[in-house]
């Protein structure tokens, strides 16, 4: 046979090489985030301590020494980077004696739990609704789902959060029930917030899943599968679903980012003591170390998520591995 194989495997572990390459670029991205945050914070007119009222020069000096603000900017930058590499984000300006690491350690798990719940709700719901709409194309249920999707996409997340809170309150009033409205003391407090948080992503994924299934509907390999004599259920499960999920996997990175930042607002409205709420508060109170610490932490988290999703994609789609 004159046909030749076109695959070129440059290394014996293309997957590993790819992962390492992505990780290195991720570290650079985190460094950039840290640097941008650091210089951004230090460019602000005034300095971190100017907001404190009536401060005697002595106290001011002590505070500057405490936060290292008396050193030259580049030295501070060096110390900042070194501390980040060690995983030390410093001490809060406004909450005396609280280490940023402790704030993250205490509050991030709550945010993460909320986010994971929202992500699960959004992906499972989106895949299911999208598949349902695609298989009922142009029927009433499809139109209803797509109408809901376009409405949800057009309403800001904080409006849903506020409305759902109002809704729970009305329900509690009307039926004398006691659904949690705000705060976080049990898992049930997170049910409504995670639904609200996942709603936008759910709508986006529904739309994506539907269009990707409809694209596949007319693919040649589906015709082949039909010609093979597979039943519709077999074709759906073995040929359509996996290929339709590929685009869904690619947007998981942005979806996590969206849910993370959306969480800021949801945590604020539902008074959930997650890291997002603290981040927003720190921003409002200009608590520099907390802003820098959480920003770098969030940045690192999101960058790593995107890399993880890319690696996951390489695992799901066999075609990716060979692309350089």
């Amino acid at each position: 046979m004159s046909e030749t194989l076109h695959t070129q495997k440059t290394t014996s572990y293309p997957w590993l090489a790819y992962a390492i390459k992505r990780l290195i670029s991720g570290v650079i991205a985190i460094w950039f985030i840290a640097t941008a945050t650091f210089f951004g914070m230090h460019l602000i007119p005034g300095d971190p301590l100017s907001s404190e009222k009536k401060m005697s020069p002595q106290i001011r000096k002590n505070l500057e020494a405490r936060y290292g603000l008396d050193k030259p900017l580049l030295t501070q930058y060096g110390i900042f980077l070194k501390n980040i590499a060690k995983g030390d984000f410093g001490i809060s300006f406004t909450q005396e004696n609280r280490r940023v690491n402790d704030i993250i350690r205490e509050h991030f798990p709550i945010s993460a739990l909320l986010g994971v719940l929202a992500l699960i709700f959004a992906t499972l719901g989106g895949i299911f609704l999208g598949a349902f709409a695609a298989t009922h194309k142009n029927q009433l249920s499809d139109h209803v789902i797509m109408l809901m999707v376009i409405l949800v996409v057009s309403v800001p997340g904080f409006v849903f959060a506020a409305l759902s809170q109002l809704g729970i309150m009305k329900i509690n009033d009307a039926f004398n029930t006691d659904f949690p409205i705000a705060g976080f003391s049990s898992l049930s407090h997170l049910v409504v917030p995670s639904i609200v948080l996942g709603l936008g992503t759910l709508a986006y994924l529904t739309r994506l899943m539907r269009s990707s299934l409809l694209d596949i509907e007319s693919a040649d390999y589906i015709r082949t599968a039909k010609a093979k004599g597979l039943s519709n259920a077999q074709i759906f499960a073995k040929h359509k679903l996996r290929n339709a999920l590929l685009p869904v996997v690619t947007v998981l990175g942005p979806a996590v980012a969206g849910i993370t930042t959306g969480g800021f607002v949801v945590e604020m409205i539902f008074a959930i003591p997650g890291l997002g709420k603290y981040f927003v508060e720190a921003v409002q109170q200009l608590d520099y170390t907390v802003i820098m610490g959480t920003a770098v932490f969030y940045g690192g988290f999101l960058v790593l998520t995107v890399i993880l999703v890319d690696i996951l994609y390489g695992w799901v789609d066999p075609r990716i591995q060979v692309v350089k």
Binding site: S25, A29, I33, A36, M41, I44, P45, T261, Y298, V306
Partner: peptide, 22 residues
């Protein structure tokens, strides 16, 4: 690629903080 990789809303917030409002 590099700028796209940055988390968008997080950076929007940081930008706002860094610019400062007189």
């Amino acid at each position: 690629d590099f700028i796209i990789a940055l988390p968008f809303l997080l950076f929007m917030i940081l930008f706002k903080v860094a610019f400062g409002i007189g």
